[in-house]
Computed example of a mutant assay.
Amino acid sequence: MTTVDRELASDIDACCRLTGSFTLRSGQQATEYFDKYLFEGDAALLSRVAREMVQILPSDTELLGGLELGGVPIATMVSYLTGHSAVFVRKQAKTYGTCKLAEGRDVAGRRVTLIEDVITTGGAVRDATRALREAGAIVEVVVCAIDRSPEGENPLADVGLEVRAVLTKAELDAARNAAR
């Protein structure tokens, strides 16, 4: 990691790593939890994470797909920094008004890079990928703030999605150990 990455990892770790007993979205039990809302609600940290995401976005990105709820503030900040339009991807299409799953511009035929906060098993990203592809989007990459999946594994390989992370759990662990 570079010095900037180490500093960001240390700051993110100090800000949002919680210990205790937690049930993850996947149903898995964990003794550590990364409360992404703690860094997403901190303008300076959110901006730093977004600037790192900009560096790893695919060059052919046409739209940013912020996943409900945690991916929305990050996608908004990345949109601001890059000028790329963002769409906001719901967990389910709403049943009133426009009845859309992806709010914003039409995704059909467009290269959508998904923006997510934390990935462990990728369940929400997998669901969003399938739904966006059904709507005609080209979805090949997800950029996340924290990838806490097992090191060296791609939890989204089954849907042909590349995961690009600003920070991995291993990097956060290294930052925590260095701070001790």
Rank of each mutant, 00 (worst) to 15 (best):
V78W: 01
D42S: 09
G109C: 03
V166C: 02
A135Y: 00
K36C: 10
Y96I: 09
D106G: 11
T2C: 12
E7K: 04
A30P: 00
L24G: 06
T31W: 05
V78R: 07
G122W: 00
G122L: 06
L101F: 02
S21Y: 14
K100T: 11
R17A: 12
N154E: 13
A9D: 02
F34Q: 01
E7G: 11
G66P: 05
R17L: 15
L132I: 13
D60Y: 05
Q29H: 07
V142S: 10
R105K: 15
C144T: 15
R25F: 11
Q92M: 06
V78E: 00
G136W: 03
T19N: 14
G123M: 03
D5G: 00
P155Y: 14
T31L: 08
P150T: 08
G122Q: 00
V163M: 03
R48T: 01
V163Q: 08
R51A: 15
I138C: 15
D117C: 05
T95R: 15
F39H: 09
L38R: 15
E171C: 07
E171N: 06
M77N: 05
A43D: 11
C16K: 04
E40I: 03
V139G: 07
P150F: 04
G71V: 09
V4F: 12
L114S: 05
E162K: 14
L69N: 05
A43L: 14
L46I: 01
F22G: 07
L101V: 02
G66A: 13
T61H: 08
T98C: 03
E171R: 13
R90W: 00
R110A: 03
L132D: 07
V141F: 02
A86M: 12
S21L: 08
E151Q: 13
F22V: 04
T76C: 14
T121N: 11
R164D: 02
G71K: 10
A50Y: 03
A43C: 10
V87Q: 10
L132S: 05
G41R: 08
R17T: 12
Q29G: 09
H84P: 04
D117T: 02
R164Q: 04
C15F: 06
